[in-house]
Design a binder for these strands. Structure first.
Lengths: 231, 231
DNA sequence: CCCAAGTTTTTTGCATGCACTTTTCACCAC
DNA sequence: GTGGTGAAAAGTGCATGCAAAAAACTTGGG
């Protein structure tokens, strides 16, 4: 049985893996991403790795400079604030859209997701960070509006990177309670309350985070990427 | 002096050229974009053309299917509406941001741009379409917020493609008057009026365009061909 | 020990070649 | 003519090779 190699586009696979690695903070801003190491990790040639880097650069997750090794992007503080403001505008749209049309099944799915998040191991925060981001992506997907979902997803990953650069270690429980409030408002069909809960939540995340400056120990790229290759 | 060969990334150059061609309607939804023809046109290899197509696909301007020739994207009606709603939210942000901080020089630049647009040849609409889009990009750039500028630009090009798919031939003069109103409100520093003018303008553009049914009415081949038979 | 200049190694930028898939077309039976 | 079939053409998917730039390392002088 072939490992259905090219079932999905390999470039897209590498992009997803790297995005996950970035928001889970396995990769930090400034980490180098040499094309051949990337290719080796994922079992592809540099050509493919290079295309993936190009996509991620367009999404703002990677910095490319001519003849230089690609690095995980280091957003400026201004960019971080900008990202959050755009994110608030877009996710307010999501909340507004969903309050009118969300189904009980979707509410149940959201609550299940929040339960998963609450059950995540608080010691190794990577899972809970990912789940927190996925909650927003899940909401965006429920709108059934693919473009909106796309932009919300992109800006959510960008936010994750900004938090990785400027945030404190990630505090989970408060976010969970705020997620619950959003779902509650959606369940009542109260668009204004849902949008308010959403903007309040995102503002709080931004405020809680944007304080500290980071430090970085050196690390081994192949070892970092190993868990993500399978995806 | 060399024609500054690799001054800017060649992939980015090809992307810009194709984006312009698309919003100027030199390329229409469904038009084929074979890699080697593209490469020949721009004097690069397929490798580079391919990367450019990947970028444009990520921006929603091109459709890529495995082993198939790339084509200019054909947005669905839902996508078109979605695009405009997102655009309205983002450009309202722009208006709000600029009303507080715009300089007299910037106002002058905007008025100059509107004058250029008014002077554009109404017979060949490509220039006026491009200038109308550029007005919004120019506004976004004046915020000094690169991420916001990036998303507004992207969504503006997407809108252009949607209009190319569903819009009527492009009516210019009304847009110019609406652009003037936006600048007037910005000059007064009236954020609410500016945002209202902007959302009104974009809604009007969408409404003016999206009236026509996306599906083509069934046509009588003989009737269509009749004028050509005599030839 | 520290630093500068030269040299080797690493890494990117890009074109090209080969395998494979899709499309087109010629051909033939009906 | 019509429809089907197999070969040729066109096109994509991807790895690889080579040139050039950047980074790392060596060496010699102070």
């Amino acid at each position: 049985m072939k490992p259905k190699r090219d079932a999905v586009d390999r470039v897209a696979q590498i992009c997803s893996a790297l995005r996950r690695a970035i928001i889970e903070r396995a990769l930090s801003p400034g980490d180098k991403l040499p094309e051949d190491q990337l290719g080796e990790s994922f079992g592809v040639s540099r050509t493919i790795a290079r295309q993936a880097l190009g996509q991620l650069a367009a999404e703002g997750l990677v910095n490319l400079r001519r003849n230089r090794i690609a690095v995980v992007a280091t957003p400026t503080v201004e960019e971080a604030h900008d990202t959050f403001e755009i994110r608030i505008a877009l996710e307010a749209l999501v909340a507004d859209c969903l309050a009118a049309a969300i189904s009980p099944e979707q509410i149940a799915e959201l609550r299940r997701h929040i339960a998963d998040q609450a059950a995540a191991d608080p010691v190794s925060p990577s899972a809970s960070i990912r789940l927190a981001t996925d909650f927003h992506v899940l909401l965006a997907g429920m709108t059934g509006r693919p473009i909106l979902e796309r932009y919300v997803t992109e800006v959510a990953y960008r936010s994750g990177l900004a938090l990785s650069a400027y945030g404190r270690p990630h505090s989970n429980d408060c976010a969970i309670e705020e997620h619950r409030q959003i779902v509650d408002a959606l369940e009542k069909g109260d668009a204004a309350a849902a949008a308010a809960a959403m903007t309040g939540h995102l503002s709080a995340v931004a405020d809680r985070a944007m304080i500290r400056a980071p430090e970085r120990p050196p690390r081994d790229l192949a070892a970092i990427l190993a868990p993500f290759v399978a995806g």
